[in-house]
Each structure stands twice: as structure tokens, then as C-alpha cells.
Simulated assay, not measured.
Amino acid sequence: MTPVPDTRSQIMNAFGEQLAAAGYPGISLVGVARSVGIQKPSIYHHFPGGKEELYAAVALRFIEQLHDRLVTALAAEGPTDHKLRVLAVVAAEHSTRAISFEQRIYDALDHVSDETRGTVSQTYVRDILDPVVALFAHAVEVGEVVGEPWFLMNAFLHLARATDLVNTPDGAAQVVALFLDGARPRQPVL
């Protein structure tokens, strides 16, 4: 039997569903409360900062969960291309909808305070982007690819998220091969 999430988790889940469906401006705390079966003041018991504090909690939980999958992908044994195949699958997991949840979290940054924006942004960079940059920095260092690691990270993640190939058999390998074809060192033409 699956345990019932506590009220705080239920509120976060309902908020996340509204964020995914309507974006930050479209979220109604009354609707969140209704979907959980509580009154709106109960939300403030768990999240005294209201909508913005709830957004931060949901965004940071998402980043933590994505970070855990990312760390697992980057810890995969094998050469860089194998790690990139696993990473491509992780990157594409949340891109199946027209607007991904990750994009909704990013878009909401325009509607929150500088403090919340800084916390969410810095956590995302530290926990999601920096480990991928480190993978590419190592690949550049050992001569597997050429380029600036931040650019390589950005190009790879955008490619993995932009294609539905990753969700097909051998799709991740095709995406990685396409990416590495452009990122590998070239022999000078004589």
C-alpha cells in the first residue's frame, strides 16, 4: 500500500500540478487548497510566505530530484559517450510536454523576489549545470572534445531536450553521436 503524502507534500504536489498546467501567474492558492481538501489558510500554516515560498519549495524539490538522477547518470561507468547517453535520457525526461516543468520553474523567476530568484537560480546552476560542465571540462582536458565546457553543456542539454529521438531505442546513442560529431577534435586539412 502506498503511503499518503503528508499535508505539506500534498500542497506542494498540487502547486506543482498548477505550475505545470498554467505557469506561476495562473496559480490559485484557493485552487491548490481545494485540490488538497483544505482551506486556504492551512497553506499559510505550512508556507507562511504564501505563493512565493511554496514556489521555492517546489522548485528546490524538483532541482534536488533532478540532481539525484544527474549524479547517478554522471557516475555511470564507462567512457564519456556512455555517460552522455545516460545524461541525454535524464535531460529528455521532462521535455515531453509542450512546456516542460523545468521551463515553468524558469519562467516563474520573473515573478518572484530577487532573493527567491537568486536561491533557485544558484541552486540550479550548482546542482544541475556545474556537474555537466565538469564532465565536459574533463572531456576537453583529455582531448575527447574541443570547445568551451559551458557552451558544450548548453548545446548538449538543448539538443537532448529538443528531440524525441532520446525516447526511441538507441535514440540517446544517436543524439550523442550527432553531438560528438560536431564536438570532437578535427584533423587539420593539409
Rank of each mutant, 00 (worst) to 15 (best):
M1R: 15
P5C: 13
D6G: 14
T7G: 03
S9A: 15
Q10V: 13
Q10F: 08
I11M: 10
M12V: 14
N13A: 15
F15Y: 12
G16N: 13
L19N: 07
A20R: 07
A21C: 06
A22Q: 13
A22G: 11
A22L: 10
G23Y: 10
I27T: 00
S28I: 04
V32K: 06
V32N: 05
A33H: 05
V36F: 08
G37W: 03
I38K: 06
Q39D: 08
K40C: 02
S42H: 03
S42Y: 00
Y44H: 02
Y44F: 01
H45V: 08
H46M: 07
F47V: 02
F47W: 02
G50T: 03
G50Y: 03
G50A: 05
K51E: 02
E52G: 11
E53H: 07
A56F: 04
A56R: 10
V58H: 05
E64H: 10
Q65L: 11
R69Q: 07
R69D: 06
V71T: 15
T72E: 13
L74G: 01
A75C: 04
A76G: 11
E77H: 13
P79H: 02
P79L: 00
K83P: 05
V89G: 02
V90L: 09
V90K: 08
E93S: 14
S95R: 06
F101H: 14
F101I: 15
Y106D: 11
D107Q: 13
A108F: 11
S113V: 13
E115F: 10
T116F: 10
R117P: 12
R117W: 10
T119P: 08
V120I: 05
Q122V: 07
T123L: 02
Y124R: 11
Y124G: 08
V125D: 07
V125Q: 07
V125I: 13
V125M: 08
R126P: 03
R126Q: 08
I128W: 00
I128Y: 00
I128V: 12
V133L: 00
A134Y: 02
H138Y: 07
A139S: 05
V140N: 02
V140G: 01
E141F: 07
G143P: 07
G143D: 10
V146A: 11
V146S: 09
V146M: 09
P149A: 14
L152G: 03
L152C: 09
N154W: 13
A155G: 08
A155P: 01
F156A: 11
H158E: 09
H158C: 09
R161D: 03
A162C: 12
D164K: 06
D164V: 04
L165M: 09
L165H: 03
V166N: 02
D170H: 05
G171L: 09
A173F: 01
Q174T: 09
V175F: 00
A177N: 04
F179H: 01
L180K: 05
P185L: 06
R186E: 10
R186G: 06
P188M: 11
P188N: 12
